[in-house]
Amino acid sequence: MMSKIPILILTGPTAVGKTDLSVKLAEILNAEIISADATQIYKKMDIGSAKITHREMKGVPHHLIDILNPDDEFSVSEYGDLAKKCIEDIHNRGKFPIITGGTGLYLNSILYKMNFGNSNSDERLRLELNELLNNKGIDYMHNLLKSYSEEVANKIHKNNTKRVIRAIEIFKLGGELGDFSKDLELNEKYDAKIVVLNRNRKLLYDRINYRVDLMFENGLIEEVKSLVDEGFSKDLVSMKAIGYKEIIDYLNGITTLEESKSIIKQNSRRYAKRQITWFKRYKDAFWIDLDNTKNIDEQIDIIMNLLKER
């Protein structure tokens, strides 16, 4: 029997503080980092995605960043295939794989055997539905499901977002309701340690607001305008990311500058809240409240001790 590949998944809500910690851990562990961020995967989308810079990487190899053009089609299953190849390659070279990012579907594609059935399945549609969930919330999505079938909506609790989205997907593709009772099956190839970073909600929201202000100072409007000028449509999955769609509305005269900034902050805070809800599904995850640690060295010590418990 083949031994499992040890991996560390370092995740948490947007702006919590994953980047610096992941790089410092990678330096200590002789590791390479695989990004699990659905926006940083695109070229030319740097400021709005808070993409790590080459300077911040400190020589640590990073994978699955800047590999797509904004108009490239890409699915969660394709991400999973690429991430698994990266994990094997890093492991075979005697290094340690660290997966860092906050896109829950991407993390699931590594942690679980993603089998949504061969029929009536559309990864691109699922991505769009998850984006709709991030923007509109679960009440909106559950009501959308009710519009297709009140009977089905009554059978699926609104907090079970995966099944709500899967049901909507099936109806949108013209299918019938399948069996939503089966949980995702764990991918046995990996010995995964999941660490979720978190902070006091108010402090996290303050960090998010500050980050958005920095994005504007660093040229977010110019970045989005450049993408639009190159012909990248607002209808692209990439351009519907938080920080981009709001600026497109500003450029089109739909909102003012201050309104767009306020909406980005609001949408980012809502996204962080939903990320936290998502990560709570990982029953074996170890949570670290960064506000209760003295410094990054203490955070590293906690994670290093956790990794020794194999």
Rank of each mutant, 00 (worst) to 15 (best):
K294H: 10
T53R: 07
V212Y: 06
G94F: 09
G94M: 09
R126G: 04
K84Q: 12
N267I: 11
R269G: 06
K234A: 15
N69R: 11
K245F: 14
E185D: 12
E56K: 08
Y250E: 03
L173Q: 05
T255C: 10
N134M: 15
S147I: 09
N292V: 06
K225P: 06
N187L: 07
Q40E: 13
G48T: 05
D122R: 03
K280H: 15
S49G: 10
N115K: 06
I208D: 00
E150W: 05
I47V: 10
K234N: 12
K136T: 11
F171Q: 02
T255D: 02
E230G: 12
N135I: 13
G94K: 06
K44Q: 15
R201I: 12
H157G: 09
V228W: 06
I9F: 08
Y106H: 05
D72L: 08
I303L: 04
R281H: 13
H157V: 07
I264V: 06
F216Y: 13
F279S: 08
E188Y: 08
D71E: 14
N218K: 14
N69K: 11
P70W: 05
D284Y: 12
I98L: 07
L306V: 02
C86W: 03
G102T: 01
I276M: 13
A50F: 06
K225A: 14
F279H: 07
I208Y: 00
I110W: 02
S49K: 02
I41R: 00
H63A: 01
I168M: 02
I168R: 01
K155P: 04
N120H: 09
H157E: 10
N154F: 03
P13Y: 00
G102W: 01
A36P: 00
E185G: 04
K234I: 13
A192M: 05
K95A: 09
E128L: 15
D301Y: 12
I264T: 03
L111V: 03
Q275V: 08
S226G: 15
P61N: 09
H157M: 11
L125D: 04
R55T: 11
H54W: 13
I208R: 00
K18G: 05
T100W: 04
D179Q: 07
S49L: 04
L214I: 13
L177Y: 07
N200W: 11
E217W: 09
D37Y: 02
S3E: 15
D46L: 08
I165A: 05
R207S: 14
R269C: 13
L125C: 10
L197E: 05
F96A: 08
F232Q: 06
L82E: 02
V228P: 04
S119A: 14
I247W: 03
L177Q: 11
A192I: 00
Y250S: 06
L132W: 08
I170Q: 03
N295T: 07
D89P: 08
G175P: 01
K234P: 14
W278S: 02
T277K: 14
M57T: 10
Y250G: 03
D291R: 07
N198C: 12
K225W: 08
N209A: 15
R93D: 05
D249W: 11
I65R: 00
S77Y: 10
E185N: 07
S121E: 07
A192P: 03
E27N: 13
L125Y: 06
I303T: 01
N292M: 14
I7D: 04
K113Q: 11
I67C: 02
F96I: 06
R163D: 14
N187M: 06
K193F: 10
A50P: 00
I248N: 00
A153I: 04
R201C: 06
Y244F: 15
I165E: 01
